[in-house]
Amino acid sequence: MPTPTLRPPSTTLEMVVFVFFAALAVLGALGTVLSRNPIRSAVGLFVHIVALAALYLNLGAHFLGVIQLLIYAGAVVVLFVFVIMLLGPAANSPQDGRGIGWRAVAAAAVAGIGGMLLFTVRYVQMAMPERTDSYGTMNVVGSFLFKQGILPFELIGVTLVIAVVGAFAIARGKHERRPLADADPTSDEKLAERDEASDKKSPATAKKAEGHS
């Protein structure tokens, strides 16, 4: 076998950390899919994500580890929990009534994907970047983003802005725009329509009112 470039844990301590968090990640994933209560599923996912982040850190990929915590644990899972809370009891899925056939299909799919993963890990030579001591650290990732990657880094700003503007455009469009004269309650026409208008006899509104009738 060609040596995989992401090196396996070398020291005992790294090994211990790896085994612990790998087991935790598997447990978390199982908890996510097996639990009936959606909140417990979300917590399982949270555990899984945190364990993965620890594995990344263990491999020396500091940046990835921190980002994993910030984005997935900090934002995605929290959003899930929000949605579950908002849905309330509706979030609980009813008893799964699907028969043995569907379960067999699901099991086959899991076995297939698992087999593919095993095959990939065992036989496929991935083209991986050379692992150095600094690979994946904040320092290196940061300098890549601001040196070689500056062009896409800046242009992603446009992507984020267009997403915000798009959301805004759709949210604001809920009410059809009315001409400004309709919307403004102090416009001449509006005042003239009101019975209790105190200055009904003011020249401007009187003229308008005549014109209307």
Binding site: V158, I162, F168, A169
Partner: peptide, 17 residues
């Protein structure tokens, strides 16, 4: 009666993309 400024911002940024 759809005149809202976002349309043009979206259009311009989409062209950038």
């Amino acid at each position: 009666r759809l005149e809202r400024g976002e349309f043009y911002t979206l259009l311009t940024f989409a062209s950038t993309g």
